[in-house]
């Protein structure tokens, strides 16, 4: 059915958002894309010249870029599934009803308040190899001191642990809101039919939570591909580039080495990478929805 007055209403309702997006998102993206084809002139400092695909060619020929790409993919291949699955399991935990649950809910939601910069500062002190709380606690149960953030093989995992600690409770709010929206009659009916907790989870909770899960997965992925604060505050991409994600490599190129063209070219590659991943996620989850 075609409704009257759709077009003018749509225009009015969309205008503020579209103006904001055009001025503060699309135009800067266009500037960034243009900048990725430019370099500062060698002859004349401050003069920007068009160099075509030169920055991209340089980047693709640079082993450090491929190393950063690998670190970015490794981080995201691990952290996104872990965060979403953990958030889902903990949401189911939080959604139980028994005496004292309110207290546990409070505990599980505490990290929401802690911003990522603060989380990084606190965790750095806790993970300090010499005087950190975690090594002291590990010592109590007879485990040797670990080097965590300053160890080439542990740094990325430590960053993931910090980001997950911080991220999971945040995503839980959304999953919990989705869970609350599922009519409780469905569960009662299933229980009367003798469905086990596992059956109820896989046949009621999961399918009805799909929209929320898709939203959480997509948002979480875009956040983690652009994860920057832990590398900026804790590891500076090291040790031995083991936490040097593309986001940080771009920051280093632009703000430490002053190669803005390279920084923007890397950023464009990163944005492309996120887009592809998100489209794949959409496609896969849509597919399941229709089957």
């Amino acid at each position: 059915m075609k409704l009257k007055g759709s077009v003018p209403a749509a225009f009015v309702l969309l205008l503020p958002a579209l103006i904001c997006l055009a001025v503060f998102r699309l135009y800067p993206i266009a500037l960034a894309a243009w900048g990725s084809f430019c370099q500062e002139s060698f002859e004349e400092a401050g003069r920007i010249i068009f160099v075509g695909l030169q920055n991209y060619a340089d980047v693709l020929g640079d082993p450090l870029f491929w190393k950063s790409l690998w670190v970015t993919l490794k981080l995201n291949a691990v952290i996104n599934p872990i965060q979403v699955v953990l958030a889902l399991l903990l949401t189911v935990m939080v959604n139980q009803r028994f005496r004292g649950i309110a207290f546990y809910r409070l505990l599980l939601f505490v990290p929401i308040g802690v911003s990522l910069p603060i989380a990084c500062v606190i965790w750095r002190l806790m993970l300090d190899p010499q005087s950190g709380l975690i090594n002291s606690l590990l010592g109590q149960i007879g485990i040797d001191k670990q080097r965590f953030l300053i160890d080439e093989h542990q740094a990325l995992w430590s960053v993931m642990a910090i980001a997950t600690w911080k991220g999971v409770s945040f995503w839980m709010i959304f999953l919990w809101a989705g869970l609350q929206a599922i009519p409780s009659e469905l569960y009662e009916a299933a229980r009367l039919d003798g469905a086990t907790a596992a059956t109820r989870f896989f046949y009621i909770t999961l399918p009805l939570l799909k929209r929320t899960l898709l939203f959480v997965l997509v948002t979480d992925t875009s956040v983690n591909f652009l994860l920057f604060v832990p590398m900026f505050l804790l590891t500076r991409g090291g040790p031995s580039y083991s936490t040097n994600v593309l986001m940080y490599e771009s920051y280093r190129s632009g703000f430490i080495y002053g190669e803005m063209g390279r920084a923007l070219a890397i950023m464009m590659v990163l944005i492309l990478l996120v887009s592809i991943t998100v489209v794949i996620q959409f496609y896969c989850l849509r597919q399941k929805e229709s089957s």
Partner: peptide
């Protein structure tokens, strides 16, 4: 599609051109 696309480039990713604007 254009609207959704913009969330792939949050402020962090386009900080420099956004600063200019």
């Amino acid at each position: 599609a254009l609207t959704v696309l913009t969330f792939l480039a949050p402020a962090e990713a386009i900080a420099v051109p956004l600063y200019t604007v």
